Amino acid sequence: MRVLVQEAPFDFGAEANTFATGHKDMGAIVTFTGVVRDLAQGDLDRMVIEHYPGMTEKALENIANDAQERWSLGDVLVIHRYGDMVPGDMIMMVATASTHRKDAFEAAEFLMDYLKSRAPFWKQEFTRDGVDWVAAKDADEAALKRW
C-alpha cells in the first residue's frame, strides 16, 4: 500500500505502470483519476485545495486499510494533490490490484467515494465573480450508504 499527499503533479501513466509492474499474481488492476473540471459557466480560474499535513495522510491510510480489510486486494495506491490547480489538472489517483476484477473495481469505487466525502481536504473555487468554498454534495454523502 502506498499513500501520497503532494503538491506536485503526478504522471498518471508512470504511476499506473509502476503500480501494475510486479503483480504477476493479480488478475485485475483498476485505476481512477480525478480531474479538476470547469464549472458549468466555464469560469473556473483555479481551485485551491488545503489540508492538514499528518492528519490527512493518516486519514487516507485508514481509508486504504479499510479497503484492504473489506476486499481481497494485493495492493492499493492513493495519490491526492493539494495546492493550486486549474481545469484539466489531475487531483487524485486510486489504483487497486486483486486476483479478480470484482474486488478491484468495488474497492476502487469505495476508495473514491470515501476520498470524496471523508478525506480532510478543503477546496476553494476562484472565478471571475469571487471565491467560494466547495460544499459537500448530497449525492456524495448518499454514495457512502452502500458501503
Rank of each mutant, 00 (worst) to 15 (best):
K58C: 00
V30C: 15
L77V: 13
V30K: 01
E69I: 06
D89M: 05
A64T: 07
K24D: 15
G74C: 03
L73T: 08
Y82Q: 01
N62Q: 13
K58E: 14
D84H: 06
R46I: 04
D25Y: 10
W71D: 11
D75L: 05
V36S: 08
D45E: 08
Y52Q: 06
D66L: 12
I29Q: 10
E50L: 06
D38S: 01
A40M: 03
M85I: 01
E69M: 09
V35R: 10
K24I: 13
M47Q: 06
I29E: 14
L44R: 06
F32P: 01
R37L: 01
I79F: 12
H51Q: 10
I49M: 14
G54H: 07
Q68H: 07
G27T: 14
Y82D: 04
P53G: 06
I63S: 09
M26D: 09
G74H: 15
A40L: 03
V35E: 12
G83P: 03
A59T: 14
R37M: 06
A67R: 04
T31R: 10
G27W: 08
G83W: 04
D75W: 04
I79G: 04
L39E: 11
D38L: 02
E69K: 15
D43T: 10
D25S: 14
M90L: 15
E50N: 07
E69Q: 15
Q41R: 10
N65Q: 15
E50Y: 11
M26Y: 05
M26V: 08
W71G: 09
I91P: 02
D66M: 07
L39K: 02
P87Y: 06
R46G: 00
V35G: 00
K58I: 02
F32M: 03
D84V: 11
L73K: 12
I63G: 05
G34N: 02
E69H: 08
T31N: 09
M85K: 00
S72E: 15
V76Y: 01
G42P: 10
L44I: 01
G54Y: 09
N62I: 07
V30T: 13
H51Y: 12
R37C: 04
G34C: 07
G54R: 06
D38C: 00
D75R: 11
H51S: 03
G54C: 13
I91Y: 05
T31H: 11
M85E: 02
I49G: 01
L73D: 12
G27P: 14
D89I: 04
L73S: 03
W71L: 06
E69G: 07
R37G: 03
T56Q: 07
R46F: 02
T31C: 11
V30H: 12
G88L: 08
G88P: 05
D75C: 03
W71I: 08
Q41A: 15
Q41L: 13
R46V: 03
H51I: 03
R46D: 00
I79Q: 08
K24R: 14
L77K: 08
T31L: 10
H51N: 10
E61S: 06
I49W: 13
S72H: 12
Y82A: 08
M26W: 09
D75H: 13
K24F: 15
A40R: 05
I49H: 00
T33G: 02
V78S: 12
G27L: 10
